[in-house]
Simulated scan of single mutants.
Amino acid sequence: MKNLILATVLSFVGLSAMAQDVSMNEAEAVAPEATLIQDFQEIDVADLPAAVITAVKKDYPTATINKAYKNESNQFKLELSLKDGASGTVYADAEGNWIEL
């Protein structure tokens, strides 16, 4: 009986993990060697590198960059909102490559 309960719980956990909502992360191409470093400081959106702005326009064409942050490793945290009302946070390096947390 314990094995049946354990198998049911494990199956449920596995299916729950597969069914998680993938929102804005679907189009992100992750640089495999990138390691995200925290301690971001807010910057003006106009100070973002052209490559980052181009990546946002390419992968999130309906997005607006609400806030931008930068850390010492020249990585950027962007708070985006889409025309359909969705919002999220994405991370990029200075070359416009997406970074996954």
Results as ranks from 00 to 15, higher is better:
Asn71Gln: 08
Ala29Ser: 08
Ala29Gly: 08
Gln38Val: 11
Lys58Phe: 10
Ser81Tyr: 00
Val52Met: 01
Ala46Met: 03
Glu100Met: 04
Lys58Gly: 05
Asn97Pro: 01
Leu101Asp: 10
Ala7Met: 06
Thr64Tyr: 08
Gln75Cys: 03
Ala34His: 12
Glu95His: 03
Asn25Ile: 14
Glu100Gly: 04
Val30Ala: 11
Ala50Ile: 09
Gln75Glu: 04
Val45Glu: 07
Ala46Ile: 04
Glu100Trp: 01
Tyr69Met: 09
Ala29Lys: 08
Asp44Asn: 13
Ser73Phe: 11
Glu33Ser: 14
Leu10Glu: 00
Lys70Asp: 05
Phe40Leu: 04
Phe76Tyr: 15
Tyr60Trp: 11
Met24Asp: 14
Ser23Pro: 12
Leu36Gly: 09
Gln41Pro: 05
Val45Thr: 12
Met24Ala: 14
Leu48Ala: 07
Glu33Ala: 13
Leu80Tyr: 04
Leu10Ala: 06
Lys67Arg: 12
Val90Tyr: 05
Ala86Arg: 14
Thr64Ser: 12
Gln75Trp: 04
Ile43Arg: 07
Lys2Asp: 08
Glu79Trp: 10
Ala31Phe: 14
Glu79Ala: 02
Pro32Tyr: 15
Val13His: 01
Glu100Lys: 02
Pro61Cys: 06
Lys58His: 11
Val9Asn: 02
Ile43Met: 08
Glu26Ala: 10
Tyr91Thr: 01
Val9Arg: 00
Leu4Pro: 00
Phe12Thr: 00
Pro49Met: 15
Glu26Gln: 08
Asn71Tyr: 08
Ser73His: 11
Asn97Gly: 00
Gly14Cys: 00
Trp98Thr: 01
Leu48Glu: 06
Asp84Gln: 09
Ala94Asp: 02
Lys70Ser: 06
Lys83Gln: 14
Ser81Leu: 00
Met24Arg: 07
Pro61Val: 07
Phe76Gln: 09
Ala68Leu: 09
Asp47Tyr: 04
Trp98Ala: 02
Thr62Met: 13
Gln20Tyr: 15
Gln38Ile: 12
Lys70Val: 13
Ala86His: 05
Asp21Asn: 13
Lys77Leu: 10
Phe76Cys: 07
Ser16Val: 04
Asp44Tyr: 09
Thr35Leu: 12
Glu95Leu: 03
Ser81Ala: 05
Ile37Ala: 11
Met18Trp: 13
Asp47Trp: 05
Pro49Ser: 15
Ala51Gln: 06
Gly88Asp: 01
Asn71Arg: 08
Ile43Val: 14
Gln20Pro: 12
Gln20Asp: 05
Ile5Pro: 00
Tyr69Ser: 08
Ile5Met: 09
Ala31Pro: 10
Ala27Trp: 10
Ala17His: 02
Ala29Cys: 04
Glu72Tyr: 05
Lys58Pro: 00
Ala31His: 13
